[in-house]
Design a protein around this nucleic acid. Structure first.
Length: 189
DNA sequence: AGGAAGATCTACT
DNA sequence: GTAGATCTTCCTA
């Protein structure tokens, strides 16, 4: 079962919260799966921390795509993975900050060059290395089962959700826009 | 040519 | 746990 496009056509904070517990899936030669345990919401034009804040550029143009599209960009030498929310022409999105490895763990270890499972995906730049996600993966549709990257629905929601301010942003908004599964060891920091 | 960016690693206390 | 170096694109001048 895959999450439908309509799931993403909502406020980014709602999508960020409800993405927790679902499964990020990448299909290469091998299949890689991870349970989403930490997210952050980014509003487009009204959010100083958002890539879209300074307008549409070659870099940020993917945020103007329709809901459920991927947006990958580079920060400090690492790729960060986002899913676009709301609707085409209204930029906003959700950053996937951490996942819990579920399938293809040996491949992740190999790609990361780390033995400890905890080190594989416990941060936004780490998970893109483990899952082999980079700038070439912009504009994919995560609601399309044929897509290289997709998100599967998971009904097991037995966990508590905590919130906080976003991490690493220069000018954060008032609201808490970071969401994570309480007590999960793969949550960053 | 120089800088910025939603981070991570390493090497210490 | 914290401090400082360093990572890689793309943007701006």
């Amino acid at each position: 079962m895959i999450l439908p496009k309509s799931f993403y056509e909502r406020d980014p904070a709602v999508v960020a919260r409800e993405l927790l517990g679902n499964m990020l899936v990448v299909r290469d030669k091998e299949v890689l799966k991870g349970r989403i345990v930490e997210t952050e919401a980014y509003y487009g034009l009204s959010d100083p921390a958002s890539r879209a804040f300074k307008g549409k550029t070659k870099l940020s143009r993917w945020m103007w795509e329709d809901a459920g599209s991927t947006f990958v960009y580079m920060v400090h030498g690492y790729w960060l993975f986002n899913i676009i929310t709301e609707r085409k022409g209204k930029p906003s999105g959700v950053l996937i900050r951490a996942v819990e490895p579920v399938e293809g763990i040996e491949h992740m270890m190999k790609r990361r060059g780390k033995e400890k499972i905890r080190d594989l995906t416990s941060g936004p730049g780490k998970l893109t290395i483990s899952f082999n996600i980079s700038g070439k993966d912009n504009g994919l549709k995560v609601y399309d089962p044929e897509s290289r990257i997709s998100v599967e629905k998971c009904d097991d929601k037995k966990f508590n959700i905590s919130t906080s301010g976003r991490i690493g942003v220069r000018e954060d908004l008032q609201e808490h826009l970071r969401f994570f599964i309480e007590g999960n060891e793969f949550v960053s920091r």
